[in-house]
């Protein structure tokens, strides 16, 4: 087959994928209020973004939520993956199945089911409900990432450690954890981004005591064109790029 055809096609798709983002970044430096025409370079939207107290508050809330949700789901997800890999126990299939269901079911189904649960047990909608919900939808992704790493790992090493008299806990800590560390980090980063980006689940399980960024953005973009959103989007883009580069760097380094 000719070589230029696939390449041109790839280039075209990338152009389409990146065009909206490019527009967003360029227009975040636009002086214009209406947002459609170019009226000169300006940082005023970044300024007005940082002067918006509710926005900055929501940003911190979101970061803290993403940080804690990613951490908790990494701990639980990492342990789940270890359990699935190493132990034989009853109901393993059911456990696997439930994780699969979480990953595959539409977000909105997860959202309403969690809302029903929180109402039933009388949990106040706020940080805790958001944390529980976010950890739940991040969990399967961490499990899969770690499982993938474990499946390529030789089982003789942990057995050797055990034969040398190490307890199960010690063996896990000294042998397995270092092995799965890159996967844990990758899973953590994935969880962090998933949490930071989530709109659907958060719409249902958040309360006014803990306002988060995606919901703030949602109410902003529904009002209409707001140049502050461009500025915010650009900042988020830079932030996730840094995170993504970091994760790639960690993965590459760990392979050496």
């Amino acid at each position: 087959m000719t070589r230029w055809l696939p390449r041109t096609y790839l280039a075209l798709v990338y152009l389409l994928v990146y065009l909206p983002i490019l527009v967003l970044v360029v227009f975040s430096f636009n002086e214009s209020r209406t947002g459609y025409s170019w009226e000169g370079l300006s940082l005023r939207w970044y300024e007005s973004l940082f002067n918006n107290r509710a926005m900055v508050g929501a940003m911190w809330n979101s970061l803290w939520l993403a940080l804690s949700a990613a951490t908790v789901s990494t701990v639980i997800g990492g342990l789940t993956a270890l359990a699935l890999h190493r132990y034989r126990f009853r109901g393993k299939k059911l456990l696997n199945g439930m994780l699969f269901v979480v990953m595959m079911s539409p977000e909105i189904v997860l959202a309403i089911s969690l809302l029903a649960l929180f109402l039933l047990v009388g949990l106040q909608l706020g940080y805790v409900s958001l944390l529980l919900a976010h950890v739940t939808f991040c969990l399967p992704f961490v499990v899969i990432t770690v499982m993938a790493r474990l499946s390529g790992f030789d089982d003789s090493l942990p057995e050797a450690a055990r034969d040398l008299g190490a307890s199960d806990f010690t063996m896990t800590r000294t042998v397995l954890i270092p092995v799965i560390m890159p996967a844990l980090l990758a899973g953590w980063l994935l969880g962090f981004t998933l949490s930071l980006d989530d709109v659907v689940v958060s719409t249902f399980v958040s309360g006014p005591s803990y306002e988060i960024l995606p919901l703030r953005i949602y109410s902003m973009v529904r009002v209409g064109l707001k140049p502050e959103v461009n500025a915010l989007g650009t900042l988020l883009l830079v932030f996730s790029l840094v995170m993504l580069m970091l994760s790639q760097w960690i993965l590459i380094r760990s392979k050496r």
């Binding site: 527009v23 953005i217 973009v221």
Partner: peptide, 16 residues
């Protein structure tokens, strides 16, 4: 990379 940016913001960019 784009998948890592907020999906609401990307939807909004399409509106522009």
């Amino acid at each position: 990379v784009p998948f890592w940016t907020n999906s609401l913001v990307r939807t909004y960019a399409l509106k522009l």
